[in-house]
Structure formats: C-alpha cells, structure tokens
Design a protein around this nucleic acid. Structure first.
Lengths: 132, 132
DNA sequence: CAGGATCCTAAAAGATACTG
DNA sequence: CAGTATCTTTTAGGATCCTG
C-alpha cells in the first residue's frame, strides 16, 4: 500500500481511489487495522503504561509507583490486555515474594511511532486552540 | 521538541531524557497532547465518520447511509464531539426540510497523518500475528 | 431532513478488602 | 510483591419513538 493510501480494511481513505464498495468498512470491525491499533492505545491509562514500558522492563509495583492513582485492578486489566495482544511479555520469577517483570515485545515496541504521532497531533491541535 | 522526543505533557518518552519528575504525566489529563489526539479518534464509529468526512463535506443522512448500522443518536454524539473539539464545522442551511452539512476544519484535516499511522501500525501488528 | 428525548443494557472504571 | 474478589459508580452505546 502506498504511503498515502490509507483506509479501513481493504479500502483506501482517498475517495477517488475507492470506486467500488468492495471491502469498504461499514461498521467497526476487529479485523480493521485502524481498530487493531486503536485497541492497543485505548482504555484509560493505556498510553501511560506503554510510555513507562518504553523506558524498559518494569515490575508491577514500579508501574504502580510511577502511576500512583492507577489501581491494582485497572493496571492488571491493562496489562492483561496488552499481553493478550502480544504487545507485552510477562515474566514471573519463581520464589517468594513473587516477582514479575513486564517488558514490551517487538510488536509492543512497534507502537512507538504511533505514540509519537499521537503526541505530535495533539500538540498541533493544542497550538491551534491557543491561537483561537 | 525534537522528532524523537515524545511524551505526555512536558515530559519526553525517552527515559534518559527525563531526569526529574517535573511535569511528568502521572494521571490521564485533558491537557496532555496524547489525550487530546486520542479524544479525536476515540469512541465507537469515530474513525469511520472521520474517514467519510476526509472525502469531503457530507450531510447527516449521507453519513448515515454510508454507515447504516450507526444510529442517529450515536452519530449526533460523535459529530457534537468533533464540533466541540473544533475538528468539524456544522453548516445548517435555513429552510425546510432542514439541511446540514458537516465538513472538516483545518484542524480536522490535520488528523489525516494520525489516521494513516493508525492504519500502518495496525497493519504491521496484523502481519506479525499472521506469522505467529 | 436532521435531529431531540427516553429508556435500557453493558462495559469500564474506581474503592476497598483480602490472598498466595 | 503481585495480584484477586467484590461491590458500586460512571459512562458508552443502542433501541425506540417523537418533533421542528
């Protein structure tokens, strides 16, 4: 796919490049790349957890310390989601007290450009709002 | 901010560039650029509505026709949100029957690279999953 | 045509307490 | 240390019917 051809599923975002209806996403679908990427960064605290993991592997409590207002329950939910999506690896060390380390997988690291773009876009929007 | 320095609010994503705690986002905040950008594309149907508007101005019912499963209520909610964020302009023509046209603002068009990146990232994740 | 008003359900988030 | 279990609250989304 060329760099400016972008769409949901088999369809591009450039109207003139979409003469037919075939494959045009007409409802949110888990198969749509846009939804897949969105799933990785959606949910409260998700981007902040990812940001912390971008800095390297972190333990459960290190993540909690970095994000004091995030409850254990929600952190667990977020991490479970990221693990299920193959973006984060969970490494449990045997013994007591328990020790778990969370680290981004290659797929997880592949999210960096998206986070960069989110930041860039948000900044641009805020700048426009300040002017207006 | 240099291209690879990216963070929430005043903080970069590069750990080694964040020696102190000052400004580090420690909770989701509407002031954080990442949250601002995410707000634009979050919510069910949001990216699909944006995609359709990227093709040019659309009436309320044209949007509904393009996304048949999207209810009037949710479409209104999504459009209200986009208008409130300054991403879409609502143009009501006087007379009866009512006619309304929705069009992206400059700010709204500024979302295109983000949508492109969402698509690109999602595609990459799907590719990895197919391999695995 | 372009919505507004209601009602309902489900999912997400938060608080609190407890366990291997 | 790293979670689980419960419960309550909040929010999002969908269905249906109605109106300027």
């Amino acid at each position: 796919m060329a760099s400016e051809r972008v769409g949901h599923q088999t369809v591009t975002w450039d109207e003139e490049l979409v003469p037919s209806e075939r494959g045009r996403t007409v409802a949110p679908s888990p198969r749509c790349p846009v939804e897949v990427a969105l799933a990785a960064v959606s949910g409260r605290w998700a981007t902040l957890v990812l940001r912390d993991l971008m800095g390297g592997p972190r333990s459960f409590s290190a993540l909690r310390t970095g994000l004091p207002q995030l409850s254990a329950k929600v952190l667990t939910e977020r991490l479970d989601g990221l693990v299920a999506q193959g973006l984060v690896r969970r490494d449990r060390s045997p013994g007591f007290p328990a020790r778990t380390e969370y680290a981004l997988t290659d797929a997880g690291r592949a999210l960096r450009p998206l986070l960069v773009e989110l930041y860039r876009t948000g900044e641009a929007l805020l700048r426009r709002r300040d002017l207006a």
